[in-house]
Design a protein around this nucleic acid. Structure first.
Lengths: 216, 216
DNA sequence: CTAGAATGTGAGCAATCGCTCACATCCGAT
DNA sequence: ATCGGATGTGAGCGATTGCTCACATTCTAG
């Protein structure tokens, strides 16, 4: 007996068996991405995506059972690049070097397609998260938490909170820079580094630390 | 002859002349706010807002010429509180104290109604901005830039960029905290302070600074 | 070559949206 | 009390949306 079709599935209805269909899927996803970053959610409709991709709506719905599935696929596609770059960061012995690489990856990720990254990030929170694919933020946080334990970084009393703070702070800065059209990666990397390492350093009595500005 | 009605106006069609109508406007705005923070943009429709407010759609359209006008009014209502609290910050002689007050105001603003603040902030960027009402971010940035010039803070080579970075970084952290359901204002304030003052301090050679962790 | 599976199409359905308008009700000035 | 403006109502219009389905086209196995 055939496995009954679960109408709530988000996976493609058919896995592309011929090269032709795989290309179609790619074209659809890229069309969706361009619409999203050029005209935002307002123009992000299934009909418009199909039109821009140069395919019929029917083709679209052969590979994506619902509009939401396209968005999910987009999120996965964009996220995979980032996750791949930071996957081996757990093996990094130096906390500082690891943090730098993490920052660089975050900056690259956001500055590559700023508008797209921002909108997908927004949608990611709204969509019911898949149980199988863990949240990207959580993954990064655990890597971060790991790096914070390295001996070359000041010990943190609440690493989990620090990790979330650093991630949030980086996201905010990188997002803002991308929105303003910044393209200079090194400058942004340096500034994010200032905030991140500044946060890590500034854990003693802040007032005493601040007073030391004068004495130097 | 009567002034011709500009159909693109966003102001109320009628200014409430009786107490009754002023109340209606309030009820509509609060209904819109609650729908937004409880069910997001998906349920944010004019029909639903009117239903929840307990009024007819017609009443809604007597005071708001288009749906967008409701959102704008919401943004103004929520923003006014924040702007009012930081308006006198330019007179603050101490940069540190000013920054602290600014951080506190930002934390309060976001933690009061986290989901609402987040969604309105998102919409604010999408909506064509009124020429008369300047962007909130720009206002805060100029205040920030002003504070950065105070003698008790380390001089910054590019105050405008620093101001934007601090704002973005704060927004990111406060946003994330609000989304996670944090309610402890002092803790969040302290952590944002760490990032902000850490960023300001960390402007010399970062590596040298970091090395000093060990020597202490 | 050919049959059947894989792939592609787009008119159009049901639902929903923002918004209008003809009309009812309420209130304050006289 | 009465009249006119201010306020409130909701059925429903035109447009748009996500999505289906009957059908056409293309590819591959035998």
């Amino acid at each position: 007996m055939a496995k009954p079709l679960d109408p709530s599935r988000l996976e493609p209805r058919k896995s592309p068996a011929q090269a032709r269909s795989a290309a179609t899927v790619g074209v659809i996803l890229e069309a969706a991405a361009r619409i999203l970053e050029e005209r935002g959610f307002e123009a992000y409709t299934t009909n418009e995506i199909a039109r821009r991709a140069g395919v019929g709506v029917g083709s679209l719905y052969q590979y994506f059972p619902r509009k939401e599935a396209i968005t999910r696929a987009l999120i996965q596609r964009e996220t995979a690049i980032l996750l791949n770059e930071i996957a081996d960061l757990g093996a990094e012995p130096s906390g500082r070097a690891g943090l730098r690489r993490l920052i660089q990856a975050a900056v690259m990720h956001q500055l590559r397609r700023p508008a797209l990254a921002r909108l997908l990030d927004f949608e990611e929170r709204r969509l019911p998260l898949d149980a199988d694919v863990a949240n990207v933020s959580d993954t990064i946080c655990s890597i971060l938490e790991d790096l914070l334990g390295r001996p070359d970084l000041p010990a943190q009393s609440d690493p989990a909170t620090v990790a979330r703070d650093l991630l949030a702070l980086t996201k905010g800065m990188v997002d803002s820079a991308g929105e303003r059209g910044e393209t200079a990666m090194e400058s942004l990397e340096r500034r994010v580094g200032r905030a991140v390492f500044g946060y890590l350093q500034m854990q003693l009595d802040e007032i005493a630390q601040a007073a030391s500005f004068f004495k130097k």
